[in-house]
């Protein structure tokens, strides 16, 4: 039952990739930042919604998972470079490890991430899937 409020606060981020953008320098942030590290006091932060499109910047395959993920192994954990710039950590689903390559185009999907046991809340959020599983990507 831990962290219900924390999860609830993060729902916009987890469901819809809501981050922020500095309208002064144009840089976008995910997770959202409240102060622009480039412009500091001159920065002007506003809410920004990411499209959910991106590419695989790097990835690894998890064979010894933490609690709550043991039945998904082997699963793919990737660093996704979002089309708007930031890199985020996410599972890549609906494919096998051999289908993923660095540079593969991906898009966000809405999935169950983890449940707090059989009695606790279910935490939903973003994961990514390959946009075109047959695509042979150009290396980044």
């Amino acid at each position: 039952m831990r962290g219900i409020a924390a999860h609830w606060r993060l729902i916009p981020q987890r469901y819809n990739l809501v981050g922020t953008k500095c309208s002064n320098c144009g840089e976008k942030f995910f997770p959202p930042r409240v102060i622009c590290p480039n412009c500091r006091r001159a920065g002007d932060i506003e809410e920004f919604r990411f499209s959910g499109e991106g590419r695989v910047y790097s990835y690894t395959v998890i064979h010894v998972p933490p609690d709550g993920f043991e039945f998904q192994k082997p699963y793919i954990l990737g660093i996704i470079e979002l089309a708007e710039g930031p890199r985020i950590l996410s599972q890549i689903v609906d494919c096998k490890p051999e289908d993923v390559e660095i540079g593969s185009r991906v898009e966000k999907v809405f999935r169950k991430v983890i449940a707090d046991g059989s009695e606790g809340i279910i935490r939903y959020g973003y994961k990514f899937k390959l946009k075109d599983p047959k695509e042979k990507p150009r290396r980044l």
Partner: peptide, 16 residues
């Protein structure tokens, strides 16, 4: 359905 899919995730994808 995959391990991480349920009625909520299917509903969200269809709604989107």
């Amino acid at each position: 359905p995959s391990l991480d899919e349920d009625t909520a995730t299917i509903s969200v994808e269809a709604a989107r």
